[in-house]
Design a protein around this nucleic acid. Structure first.
Lengths: 201, 201
DNA sequence: ACCTGAACACCGTTCAAGT
DNA sequence: ACCTGAACACCGTTCAAGT
């Protein structure tokens, strides 16, 4: 990469970080280019899609999460490791408001610049989940996709201004649901009276 | 309302229902007006904000949910009533992709056309929750705001194409977390070893 | 190689002019 | 009373023209 191009790339990333922090993942790309004092085409040259820009912004966090998953697998008990890692993933997704939708969509879109990172994260989570399930401390009716979906739901909560204050508490509620060796069939406690069609599973 | 105005209003609602079903709650209002063969100003006259249009589209469902809450309070066991009603609220929010964000934002925005409906729904849910808690079949560390937030998270799952297939299953997982008389302190099972800072609550 | 910004096809929102 | 659509200020995306 030519020196001037590299300088533009770095500067765009710095400005984009500020703008996306303020306006969210759907921030105006025009605004980013404007505030970076760079032509609009230059932004598109370095980051051909919005996903590519978001991926560059989250790169460090993604790498940290992958490393963290490996460490937790050996340093903590299976239950604690899983919950601690989930907390970190949610925090990562919450770095930029609105990023989580793009991330979950990327899982099924190999063309997305976020695809690889998200697939890697999903796999790392699945490993921690299987380990916890093997020890009998996690529900066995969940898989990696379910876990990723729950992370998405929790990250979404943190993105909503009116719900963000409850996000931490609800993380604990859902984490406690994951950390349970309850059998799938006995999920509904108490009465057996059912006036409406009962749930499938 | 003048006859021609009323006709426009009804026709706009019909067309909007189709467009919003296709494109989601953030559909192009221009497109709605265009497909309704009506001037753009006419749409804005009848529905001054996007929230107003969405409210009109969801009106029937909102009323149904309020009525349903009252019936369930007397016809079903507290646990079953709560879960059945939550299922209906999530289904309502899922009628239009992306509607849930507007709905949760409306809770804290008295100026939103959706404010009253959402506050009413939150209150109805809180009543069903308190009733279940009094019978010892629901977690006591949840309140109406938490319940509304969980509904939001579940509705969000249903809005994401890649996660929607898991939405039903995850509804059951989260419902089982709500329907539990576990004490807040004992949420984390198994080991006590903690290598990371432990959660606040 | 890389940068620039005009050009195109879209938005949401407002409001003077019409009936 | 109500309807219309031009006008304005924005987008995202592309690409010919420049250095």
């Amino acid at each position: 990469m030519r020196a001037d191009a590299k300088k533009n790339y770095e500067h765009l990333l710095t400005v984009a970080r500020a703008v996306v922090t303020e306006q969210g993942a759907d921030a105006s790309l025009r605004d980013v280019a404007r505030r970076a004092d760079v032509g609009l085409g230059t932004l598109y040259r370095h980051f051909p899609t919005r996903e590519a820009l978001l991926e560059a912004l989250l790169r460090t966090s993604f790498d940290g999460l992958t490393a963290s998953a490996g460490q937790l697998e050996t340093s903590s008990s299976p239950g604690d490791a899983l919950v601690a890692w989930l907390r970190d993933v949610v925090a990562c997704a919450n770095e930029y408001r609105g990023a989580i939708s793009t991330m979950v969509a990327a899982i099924e879109d190999p063309a997305s610049a976020l695809h690889a990172s998200c697939v890697t994260m999903k796999a790392a989570g699945a490993r921690l989940l299987v380990r916890a399930q093997a020890e009998g401390v996690a529900r066995t009716d969940l898989d990696g996709a379910d876990l990723f979906a729950l992370v998405g739901a929790l990250a979404w909560l943190g993105d909503q201004p009116s719900l963000a204050p409850r996000a931490d508490h609800l993380f604990n509620v859902i984490a406690s649901a994951i950390l349970s060796n309850r059998a799938p069939q006995t999920t509904a406690p108490a009465r057996r009276i059912r006036t409406r069609s009962s749930p499938a599973g």
